[in-house]
């Protein structure tokens, strides 16, 4: 049924992505592809993978943005995947009931056996999170690795989404955002985690942590300090000072 659950689920599983820490290595995207091409929505088909115009299904894509310019400007790596919204338009537009939001934990999923491949859900998602598989003729999307997080065959520490488990910088966190006391919720509260495009009204579950403010006011002072240090530098050794003076000529 593509009507949303009448009440938002108590558990709201999702991701918290730290834009301050992400180094843009794409490891999360690659591990996502690797796991999911053999998982719940397998395969994540690639078309013309070694040709001139490759096209493939990925659930996680890493953009890089420049925000601001000059000394205040920042380069921000920005992983983007399904946000498992509380009010996902992709679910309500589905004419067949293939798209659904799980009542138990809020994960947004597609039933590949009843999807007719009309693509309307991908039109309805403002975040571009759903990708159509041309060879399977059905829509595919991030499952939050339901085949990992509930997988009793995996050691407990591996029961987290593939993207989270692989992040070498620990920029990705997984947990229950419906529980205000969970680690992820506290992280969001502490760091001012925010929603992407709140004006679209989808109430995303996933949150993004902003890049930390840089102590920009110290930069000019530090630079002039370095300059003076260079001009008045003394190694404490007369010989090395003599070498320095001669090399600096």
């Amino acid at each position: 049924m593509t009507s949303l659950p009448k009440q938002a689920s108590v558990r709201q599983l999702g991701l918290v992505i730290d834009l301050d820490i992400c180094v843009g290595c794409h490891a999360c995207a690659v591990n996502c592809k690797e796991w999911n091409t053999g998982g719940h929505s397998a395969p994540l088909t690639d078309e013309d993978p070694y040709g001139a115009d490759p096209l493939g299904v990925w659930f996680n894509r890493i953009h890089t943005y420049e925000a601001g310019s000059g000394p205040e400007g920042r380069t921000v790596h920005f992983p983007r995947s399904c946000l498992h919204c509380e009010e996902p338009a992709c679910v309500t537009v589905c004419p067949t009931g293939a798209s659904y939001k799980r009542e138990s934990d809020g994960i947004v999923l597609v039933n590949a056996d009843t999807c007719i491949g009309c693509k309307l859900c991908s039109w309805a998602c403002p975040y571009g999170a759903r990708e159509y598989d041309h060879s399977d003729g059905v829509m595919k999307k991030c499952t939050l690795c339901i085949d990992r997080i509930e997988n009793q065959n995996l050691p407990e520490e591996d029961r987290i989404p593939a993207c989270v488990s692989t992040c070498p910088a620990s920029a990705r966190h997984f947990g229950d955002l419906g529980d205000p006391n969970s680690e992820v919720s506290q992280l969001v509260a502490e760091r001012g985690g925010y929603d992407l495009m709140p004006e679209m009204g989808m109430k995303p579950t996933n949150k993004y942590l902003p890049p930390r403010a840089r102590p920009t006011s110290n930069a000019p002072a530090a630079q002039s300090a370095l300059k003076t240090a260079a001009e008045t530098s003394s190694t404490g050794s007369r010989f090395l000072d003599w070498v320095d003076r001669n090399l600096s000529r």
Binding site: A67, G68, L196, M197, P211
Partner: peptide
């Protein structure tokens, strides 16, 4: 608003 980075400055795709 899509990236939430507007508080730093104008956002462009790098």
């Amino acid at each position: 608003s899509a990236t939430g980075l507007g508080h730093i400055g104008p956002v462009t795709l790098f």
